[in-house]
Design a protein around this nucleic acid. Structure first.
Length: 290
DNA sequence: TGGCCGTACTG
DNA sequence: CAGTACG
DNA sequence: GCCA
């Protein structure tokens, strides 16, 4: 029974979720998620690497400790550290952090204040209107939670590039015709030409961002507005596909295109590089000093 | 051994 | 402000 | 947790 990279990545992600809810050091949590991402993008089977006696610490984000844990999972099929951590929590609790809008703090609050231990519990509590009363929550958050839970059962929401393009094209045309809008660029994984994309990231230049996000939120295909401010709006269109719109001034177009095209890991590396040079990189430009 | 990306929206 | 999310 |  071979253990595949995907299985190990899943185990590491689960470990991250559990540690997250337990309030562990966020950087340690991040380390597990980073290692999971490395394993998933790895062209080779780590099981083979282990069998060949290769040095797993050469993999980015994998140090001595995680290399040992990978070997343990591959050779024994068990991940004792995860089993140990899981024994500290109700088994379904860590699943809650996979609901968009729920992070570790809110999950803890749900558990401690309402005794919610699973998605099932959460659904009942939200339907009863008990969630909206919690500190840090509100009617809007509660409604969002119910929608996200309903979406969990739905079919996988990543789209093939070509299908994403069919959604993107009319939105792009619409935005180009929008008053005050200059450039329009579909960025993110779509621009990176990944085989599938999980959402659309559309960058627009305009002087009055609030006006654009406001108009966009009222687009006829928009079925749900997750957030909308003066420079960004996150909505869902048609079949529940998420679209992130970012509006910047014309003079930030280049930096914003760089940022919005990603990947996330690439952005972090570039920003680290800037730091090493004593600079600061963000979506508005590259700046000197702190 | 200490730092770990930088910013936007919500409650 | 803390929490969560975005690349 | 990893890494310089």
């Amino acid at each position: 029974m071979a253990v595949h990279n995907r299985d190990i990545a899943e185990a590491f992600r689960r470990m991250a979720d559990v540690l997250d809810v337990e309030g562990e050091n966020p950087f340690r949590v991040r380390a597990y998620r980073q290692a999971a991402a490395t394993l998933e993008s790895l062209p080779r089977d780590v099981g083979d690497m282990v069998a060949a006696g290769e040095d797993l610490t050469r993999l980015p984000g994998v140090g001595e400790d995680l290399a040992n844990k990978i070997r343990e999972i591959v050779t024994t099929g068990h991940f004792r550290a995860l089993e140990e951590e899981l024994s500290h929590l109700p088994p379904g609790l860590a699943d809650l952090v996979r609901i968009p809008g729920l992070g570790p703090k809110r999950v803890r609050a749900l558990y401690q204040l309402l005794g919610i231990e699973s998605i099932e519990d959460l659904k009942k509590a939200a339907e009863a209107g008990e969630v909206a009363n919690l500190p840090g929550f509100g009617a809007r958050t509660e409604a969002r939670i119910l929608e996200e839970i309903a979406r969990l059962g739905a079919t996988e929401r990543r789209l093939r590039l070509i299908d994403a393009e069919h959604i993107a094209n009319p939105l792009t045309s619409w935005l180009e015709a929008c008053p005050g809008v200059g450039r329009v660029l579909v960025a993110g994984s779509f621009r990176r030409r990944k085989e599938t994309v999980g959402d659309l990231d559309i960058l627009v230049t305009a002087a009055d961002g609030a006006d654009v996000t406001r108009r966009f939120s009222k687009h006829p295909d928009v079925t749900e507005v997750l957030s909308a401010g003066p420079t960004r709006a996150t909505v869902r269109v048609g079949g529940g596909f998420q679209v992130d719109l970012r509006v910047v001034d014309e003079n930030a177009y280049g930096s914003a295109a760089l940022y919005f095209t990603g990947s996330k890991a690439h952005n972090i590396e570039l920003r680290k590089l800037a730091i090493r040079h004593g600079w600061k990189l963000n979506e508005y430009g590259l700046f000197a000093g702190e």
